[in-house]
Amino acid sequence: MHREMKARDLRVSWLQKMGPLAGLLLIIILLSTISHDFLSMSNIFNVLRQISINALLAFGMTLVILTGGIDLSVGSILALSGVLTAGMMGMGIEPWLASLIGIIAGAVMGSINGLLITKGRVAPFIATLATMSLFRGLTLVYSEGRPIISDDYSFVIMGQGYFLEIPIPVIWILICFFVLGFILKNTPFGRHIYALGGNEEAALLAGIRTVGVKVAVYTLSGIFAALAGIILTARLSSAQPTMGTGYELSAIAAVVLGGTSLTGGKGWITGTLIGAMIIGVLDNGLNLLNVSSFYQQVVKGAVILIAVLLDRSQKT
């Protein structure tokens, strides 16, 4: 009885961890046999740069989803932080300081989400649905609906530059990936996130400040969204008030593709990176194959469904 359980337990967790990676490899092999450009170094970095925005959003989203919540406002936080940063630079503020202000703005927006959810007892879906509209509206108000140009060289290299041949946005996601992975595995805060998502009542009774952990998690999600907004602004040399619209859904898709459970308590950041890569590789590969963007959406939807259905069948 116990031995059976062990075997099952191990098999399930192994499949859950390896499933997304196997899927990614499968897609890569498939695409590289069809298109010869696909596996070139420049294309690989191209893909990584393309997924950097989504990966950053998805990292923050992973933390939120691990606690059993959801954050729909990340696309709007991205936009508001982006236009604020660009706006500050337009006023002559140094790029680094303007970026810092953008990040702080993201943190404030995230903590507003967290406070609404904990102190205000609003369901995460509703709270962030409201702030999604709120922050987007503020973005349009601040920018008067127009793009804000920011072509300061020291700023745009954040999105367009290279460091030792590696695109700088890729360096950003690697740093964030390792730091987050370490935090989740090796710090009490990481443990608390998993415990809270697994059983909030038990976490509370173990003395965990559940309110504090939740606020921190939404704040981090806001910071990641702001970082993504700044990098996107740098890449485009301007902040578009409509940028990031719908990005929250891609971020959620990456988290789910990576095997993190939407009910909380189960998941890992590596899965999310793989999930984001699956989406990025599909986009890129289908582009190389000249598949129309209409069909691309169909394929992406189908891949997400297949992944989730496979995941289900392993669990039952």
Binding site: N186, T187, P188, R191, H192, Y194, A195, G198, N199, E201, A202, A203, L205, A206, G207, I208, G265, K266
Partner: peptide
């Protein structure tokens, strides 16, 4: 099940959840 344990986590993590601070040095477990 409802209040005492985090069923989705390991025996170890459940054991140390209330006393994690005593296994932590410089912020790391």
């Amino acid at each position: 099940k409802g209040e005492g344990l985090v069923l989705s986590r390991s025996v170890k993590e459940n054991f140390t959840l209330p006393s994690l601070a005593s296994f932590t040095k410089g912020g790391f477990i």
